[in-house]
Each structure stands twice: as structure tokens, then as C-alpha cells.
Nucleic acid binder design. Sequence first.
RNA 1: GCCGAGGUGGCGAAAUUGGUAGACGCACCAGCCUUAGGAGCUGGCGGGAUCAAACCCAUGGAGGUUCAAGUCCUCUCCUCGGCACCA
Length: 949
Amino acid sequence: MTKEYDHKKIEQKWRREWEKHELYKTPASPEDHGKPKCYVLDMFPFPSGEGLHVGHPKGYIASDIYSRFKKMNGFNILHPMGWDAFGLPAEQYAIKNKIHPRIAVEKNIARFKEQLSLIGFNYDWDREINTTDTRYYKWTQWIFLKLLEKGLAYESFEPVNWCPSCQTGLANEDLDGTRCERCGTEVEKRPMRQWVLKITDYADRLIADLDDLNWPEHVKEAQRNWIGRSEGALISFQLIGFSFQLDVFTTRPDTLFGATYCVVAPEHELIDKLKSKISNWDEVLTYREDMKKKTEIERTAEGMEKTGVKLVGVTAINPVNNEKLPIFIADYVLAHYGTGAIMAVPAHDSRDHEFAKKFDLPIRAVIEPVTGEKRENEEFRKSIVAIVHNKKDDTFLSINWGDKLGGNLFVGGGRENDEDPLACAGREIGEETGYKNVSFISQTESIHHHYRAHSKGVNREIEAVGLYFELDDNEQIPIKREEDEKGKFTVEWIARSEVGNKIKDELHALAFDLLVNGSVYSGAGIMINSGKFDGMTNDEAKKDITEFAGGQLKTTYKLRDWVFSRQRYWGEPIPVIHCERCGTVPVPEKDLPVKLPDVDSYEPTGTGESPLANIRDWVNVKCPKCHGDAKRETNTMPNWAGSSWYYLRYIDPRNQNALVDKEKEKYWSPVDVYVGGDHATRHLIYARFWHKFLFDIGAVNYSEPFKRLEFLGVILAEDGRKMSKRWGNVVNPDDIVELYGADTLRVYEMFMGPFENASAWKTESIIGSRRFVEKIWRIFSKVKSENEKLKTTIQNEKLTTLYNQTLKKISENIEDFKFNTAISAMMILANELEKEESIDQEMFEGFLKIFAPFAPHIADELWHDMGHDSFIYNEPWPEYDALKIQDEMMIIAVQVNGKLRATFEIARGTEEEEVKKQALLIPEVLKWTDDKKMKKVIYVKEKLVSIVI
RNA sequence: GCCGAGGUGGCGAAAUUGGUAGACGCACCAGCCUUAGGAGCUGGCGGGAUCAAACCCAUGGAGGUUCAAGUCCUCUCCUCGGCACCA
């Protein structure tokens, strides 16, 4: 008789056993280092007061499974856990509950740890770290000192994002658009002293090194976006009557001849210097004041009309042609990007175009669009493309030439050298479609187009003009057609939404885009209206024109330096001392850590100063240099500081002499798999930045910290919303473990769907995973030892094949983080095993081993019940038998004209001719092939026979 | 607007190089078992048509390539995520 599956008893028992035997201790001795290593890392949690919900463990379960798998495959694994416990939420929790943050953090950690322990993870708790531990943040401060030493940390007085609700300055990364991402309050710009890290120095490397990382594309892309590298040129414009110049940044120096005005951001410092010559100063001031009042959101709202004011009296000189250009201030130019000023080229930039239209400024095209690829021996022709719009049903006139001649085109035609394009278009419309009465609306500049005229067998370069007409009425004249053209092409009106689909020709599509959609051409082409540069491609002209204008090529970034100081209590004190005589003096390394003092009130002062400023005993110190009176820096670090290097500390968590021993680091780094969600830009950029810095100063061995990133999809509540106390939809893992068991919870969370998919929690569905776990328990009673087996059935070929296939698939799936299909494969095998009267012991042992990473408690229970004394964790991973992953028989599908008509079974290894012959004899196939001529019969090895008739 | 990831049953989802679409699970239906409920077991479960079978349709939509398309190509619509007046 089988015993009951009592998950509570079993799970508790095995957790105790594991602990007792220190099963999950990371090997530390050097002789163990001969083995390959695998560092599996979770994004460590912030221990909030709310405790864990069922979404939290998802990533931990995955990393647990992966690391157990690697361990059984012979790797030394490092799989640690710790706490990211500094930061505003901890402080706010403490203020609200009137306890010291340190006490609150301790309490919350204890609760988190308790919850985690119920799930049966293989964490090595000897390596636990806590960012708020003085022994830990000593090294966070040490890194800051090194940054300071290398000139990568500096004090700045630039206006900073200030959250009035959180009472602190924030980095750009801490904003959600223009709001504080934590509390949703609109941030202000506030001038104040702050510490800033020069992350921009690393911008290029942070982008370039992404290429070699095994990370999800969207995370890499988010980082590229955030860093926002763009290559362009710095061009200086002389200002008439001033000795200084107006510097602009542009990515399109090739369009310099098309600049018709300049714009500077309203906040630009240059404006005050120009005051003496500006005759409408009042107007300028008013505009600037208005801009200040407007929130960022109002300024950047979509569909916002462009606004601006001309600086009457000041003129810039275009360095390439000495043209006098008016200067405007307008808020569509941002002060903090590039130089805060632009040259405007309305012909080739949609924003400048919009502004120019509104202020009636000249628009000069300097690039002639070129479409198609240049070919050999081109014949040159001039032509037109005429687009006729019928307002009544919003359709466009086209001619369908049939699939061979390019499908639908607008009306087109050759134009004699001196023929007026407008007249030509009118003539062609009449000749080809019969429509008589159309009104001209607009036309494009010339467009060059290279193509091969297949019907004539020649390559052509055409210079076309696009023209746009409105249909007046339906009056038509009979179409004259050559005899051989009749019926070959037909006139069709196509709907606006169908144009993209039907008009495939590049030239015609571009004409539509420019004329009908009103797009501004910003693509490639050849230079026109640009003096000696005419005729060059715009790409070639970029460098030449920059040089000619006396400018220089330059790369800019959207990424700003990292605002690193917070005016709050609960963070690492910035280890710096301000001395009146010596200035800013770093705290000597030997004096680290600068411990956070105890205070009566850790609430923000409201003055923009940290609460630390009020602790006189702490603030007042002697200057390390001159030993005179000095004051400590009272700002603290953001909570992203501790998390920017924690993964290194796990390698050597108790080291007193260095943040990590370099030899140990060499062995364990880099992190092989980093598991977590969110943080696509912030944490992962900051950590990469610090890591590269540590690499540069020789503190670590590799230049990237995380080789592979597995991005986790969140678990939402059943209502599809985020799981949160606020919505009252939180599911506590403790309850699930109590009711269904940790093993079931683990299986369920991995079976929910692809790991990277977000999915909604469904308590209803857990039962399936529980049934599966119970099924394994039941199957166990059928396991027969070798001796018993002799009495029972002979070995089942099919089952052996399936078993070996499953071993292979599980190994591959775990490596690829495809846990859902791994579980599905185990279920299939379990279903088959259940049908058997008796199960081979060796096979079941193998099954238990692959099941163990997913459900370690029940696996160890059954493992021991089979008579083993070892832990399954220390067992080797079962290898599949390559000779046994294929059935003796193969199933061949038979298709007739692409449709499946039958399947049949035949011995593997049967010759192609024989398989074909058999296929053709099947009655279901004969029915379709009967008395019809067979064109061919295709055989796809071991898969199918396809018959074409 | 730009970039990225997607769109397959009632639901979560599977599907080597193009090669039997919907594996596995949930829910649901029927039967067995049970005093009953639940659990368990057996069978069914994309849509249409039919007594039933043959058959027809079907992977957001439209075209295309191919003996063969969820998978490749062109276009288009929608959803989610990131950036967003970034010159």
C-alpha cells in the first residue's frame, strides 16, 4: 500500500535535511576550482513591508532549477541571495510605522527569508549580503572614492530634478516622463549642489559592448535608446555685431545650404548676451517666462503647435554661403541636448518645416531624392508621376498593368526635354485614363529613380516630377489604345488605405508620401542648391561640408551624467568632507565606512538639505588634510548605488581588505545567467558602468558583469492588474505552499507559460500541476527492482525511446529557460509511465533526477524511498542514449497536391523508392491519384511523401 | 513618430532546417466510481457539414514564393514594451 503524499511533512523534512548537511554550501577551496563554474544570479529584492507575493519567486524558481541542473551536470555553482535595503521606500515605511529604518529592514528581511525558505531554494545563505550593512557599504563608499579620485565624480550646480513630495533630487533615470517614478509627482527643476557621476564618459563602451551580450534584444535596444548616441557635426555661425558665435549641433551637416534660420532654446544662456541688440526684448522675456510656467508635459504634448519668438536685431551668418539667417527662440529646441541650438532646414526636417510654415520662413530643398539602385548603362529620361485624387470617395487614380509589369502605378509617362511637367501630366492623364477635368494642387521637386525596365530590357535613370491633382468631374474621353495594348492594363481607383499595399513602385510610393501625406523628405539623395557640392551624394557631402564650414564631426548622447546625491537619511553617506581651506576632501580610505549616525528624526528637512545636516556631532569633523574644522557631506547615495556592484560581493562576502578578491573574482565572474525583470535601463546601465570602471582601475577581471540575461515576465493578479496591497489582489506564496506544497508551486509557476511572458495568476489552474506531482508519487508504487523485473514484462521499446527523448529534451529546455515545455515533456512521459504495469527502476531514477530541479522535496523523498542514502542534488545528471531516441518505425505523412491525405507506418531505414511505392498503394491516396497523371513524387526523409498531380 | 517584442481554440500555450497545426495543462461535456459533494479514472473537446464518414474552412488581414507556409517575402491592421520636438 502506498503512503499518502503529505507535502507538508515531506517538504519540511527535506529542508531540514538539506540544511543539516549543508548541501547548498558553495565550494570555496581552490582544488574545487578545477571544475567549470556557473554563477547564477537573481536580482536581489528590496525587502518591503508587504512581504513576498507569488510573483516574486518566479525568477528565483527559474534560477534555482537552472543552478540545480548545472550542479548535477558537474559545475561548481554560485547561487546567492541578499537584500537591497537602502532607499526611500524603506525610509518611508519606517517613518510611517515610527520605527528606525534599520529595525524595519531587519524585520522585513526576516519575513522575506522565512517566506523564501518555504519554497526550497538552494541558496547558500552563508553568502547573504545586505547593502545597509556597514561592512558592505564600506565598499560602496570605497568605489565612490575611486570615482572621485579618477575625476568621474564631481559636484555640480546645474538645476536638478526635484521631487517636492519625496523631498529629494532625482536622476533622469528616476523619472517617468516628467514625473517622479516613485510617487507620480510632477518634478521641478531646482538649482542646488549635487554629486554627479560621469557616466557619459562610458556611453560609447556601454553601447558598443552590448553587441556581445547574450541579452534579450528589447533590453539591449532600451539601453541603446536611453544612451541615445548620435553622430553629427558642430557648426559655428557668426553673429553680426558680436565677437562670439552661435554653435549648433546637427546630424545633417549635408543640408547646411538649406538652413534658412536658426533656433535656440528659450533657456539658452546666449540670449542674455545678445540682449543689447534685441529690439523686442520684452516679447522675448515674456516667452521665456511663459515657458518656465508651462510644465514639461504641456510643452511636449502631442500635436502641440510650434511656438517661438524672433530675436529681432540679431542675425547669424551661414558659414557656407554667408547668408543672413534670422534667429528664433522656440521651445521645440531643448536646452540640454546638443548645444541647445539648431540650424533649421525646413525642407528636410519635419519639425523645422512645421515651424517655417507657421512663421512663413523660406524653405529651400538641397537634396534631391534618389530611389532605386544605380545600374550599368543607364538610359536617361525625364518623366512625371501624376496622382489624381477623387474627393468624393477618397480614392486615387491608378493603372493596373498586371502582375508582370509591376501591378498598380499612378499615371506616369515620359516627358520631352522642354515639356512643362504640368502639361505633360494633364496629357498623360487624358491619354491613359480618359479623365478630362482635373485641378492641379501641388508638385514635388525632381526625384531621381533608377530601375530596370524589364519589358524593354534596358536600365534607366529617370528624373521625375510628382504632381498632385484633384478630380473635378467624371467626364471622360475615349481612351486611345494601340491594338496590342488593349485589355492589358485597366484603370482602377484605389482607396487611400490600399495605396501602401498596391503601389509597390518606390518612386510612385515616394511621390504619394510627399504629395498626399505631406511628408518632408529626410532620406538620402544628391546635393542640389549647394554650390560646389552639387551632384555629390549627401552622404559624401556630410564630411566635406562640415570641413568647408569650419565645423567638426561630433557625437552626442541623450544620456546625462548620473545625479548621485539624495537629500534623504536612509542611504550610504557620501564619504567626503568639506573644508573651508582645503575644499572638498575625500574621507581617507582607512576611515571607511562613514557610518550613518543614529538620529531622532530621519524625516526630510524640507529645506533641500539631508536630515544628516542636523546631527552636529556627526557633521562637524576635522579636515583630514589640514586638521582644521570641517563638515561632512550630508547627502546620501541613491539606492541604485548598492545594487550596482552587489553581485561581486557574493563571490567574497566577508573580505575585509578588498571589495572582492581578484583571484576568486577571476574564477566566478562573470555572472553566467542573470535572472530578473524590470530595470532594463537603470540598474543594468549603472551596474555595467561601475563594472567597467572597476575593470579600468584593475579591481575586476572582466569588462562586462552579466554574460547572459534572462528577462522575466511578471505574474499579474487574476484580475490582470499588478499584484499589490492597494488592489487587494495579492496572493501569498505561503498560502499556496500550505495548501498545495512548494513543489507544486514551483512546477506551476514554471508551467504557466514562456518564462519571459507576463501572465495572470490563476489559482484554479494550479490543480493541474498538483495532479502531476501526485502522479509521480503514484507511479512510484509501480517501480520494480531489477530482480522483480525479471518476473514481469520485457522492456518496452516505445517507452525506452520516449524516455531517452525526454532526457534530451529536458536538458535542452532547461539550458534555454524553456521550463514550460520541459514540464510538458515530463508530463507526457509520466502519462505513459502510468499506463505501464511496472516500471524499470533505472528509468524511474532517471526520471526523478530530471524532475528534482523542479520539485526537489518530493524527488529526495522518493529517491530515499528507493533505498538511496545520497541526496539527489549530488547525483550526476542522466545522459540520454543517442541510439535509443528514435523509434524503429517511422510515421510517414502522404500529401497529394499539398493536402494531407493519409499517414502510414513503415520501418525506419526503408529505402526511398520503397516508401514512395508503399505510399502510392494506400487506398486513401489512390482515391486522389486515381487515373491522374503524376507529375512528381517528393520524399522528405523520414517525414513525408508529397505527390503532385 | 521611431525602435523592439508579439497576434495560433473558451483560457495558458506547443509546433527542428518550411514538412501531419493546436502537443501538454486548465475549463467544459459525457460515462464510471461515490449516500452526496469533492477527488480519482475513462472518453470527448478549433469551426462548418453530416445519422456517420468522406469532405470543406482555419494560425489578425491581403497578396506572393513553394509540391508544401503559423514558419520565408511584400504590404496592412491590432496589442504590449521602450524612447519621444534628442536636431
